[in-house]
Design a binder for these strands. Structure first.
Lengths: 142, 142
DNA sequence: CCTAAATGCTCTAGTAGCTGTAGATTCAAG
DNA sequence: CTTGAATCTACAGCTACTAGAGCATTTAGG
């Protein structure tokens, strides 16, 4: 059942060896069997769980959210409202983030457009950055 | 000339007291004068510099990039091509980030739309997350 | 003038999510 | 049997702050 070394799992999932050990350290991934020489040996359940974690991380879920998702996913007969809630919260976060980046983009573009390409002394980028009347107009946290 | 306490500067710029001290620690903000009782006292030049730093940070420039911008901005008679380059690089980063978030958004929405709102056992969100054939399709680093 | 509250000081540790290093051991190929 | 790659543990480091302990100083009110 347990056939993959940590290196094999690493390349299969596309996740660094240290990261796998880190997930074990923080309790996201249960400790696997060990070989006679103390090397970790993983089976399909570990593979699935790691894939779940990585895919979730790539979608930007926090470790804590993933912890919740994993524990929720084990109770098959429970309502999935909480799972849906976590996913929707993440979507809302992404939306806010996109909106904020859009504002930043506009400001950066305006700034760059004003650069006359000459000397630092007359560089509008520096002027714009030094002008903090624009500060906090982009606020909205993350 | 040096009239502001660290607290006054903090509220004026909208930056935490600890953050100001941190910028001094890492050499972004030069050490200010001190009062007889060893309290920091800031003048207009510090105020400007801190504003520059905060505005740049809000636009997502890294501390290292800000260090470059600050040192470049001191050489008034130099070409501002490097400054322009740093700004354009940041814009490109923002663009990549927005594109990536757009892909994530789509995937999250699809996932959420598939949730039937019933029980965890049949929850498509969990299924989608566990399916790592989608992993790395969103790759593109940051 | 005195006192209490607010603010300041330094130093240290903690946050998220890994990533990298050192030095010892184990494994697989030739 | 040897050699080189992979693995082991343990710990330091990264970014950009943020929080707290324990003390000193400043300021406002009475």
């Amino acid at each position: 059942m347990a056939t993959l070394t940590i290196g094999a799992l690493s390349t299969k999932i596309g996740c660094k060896v240290q990261t796998i050990r880190y997930y074990e350290d923080i309790g996201l991934l249960p400790p696997p069997e060990r070989s006679s020489g103390n090397h970790r040996l993983y089976g399909p359940s570990h593979e699935k769980r790691l894939a779940f974690i990585r895919h979730s991380r790539e979608l930007g879920f926090s470790i804590d959210q993933i912890r919740s998702l994993l524990s929720l996913s084990d109770n098959h007969d429970q309502s999935c409202a909480t799972i849906d809630g976590i996913a929707r919260k993440r979507l809302a976060d992404v939306d806010r983030h996109i909106a904020r980046l859009g504002r930043l983009r506009t400001e950066l573009q305006t700034m760059i457009a004003q650069c006359d390409g000459n000397q630092v002394g007359s560089c509008h980028i520096i002027e714009v950055l030094a002008d903090y009347s624009h500060s906090h107009c982009t606020s909205g946290k993350h």
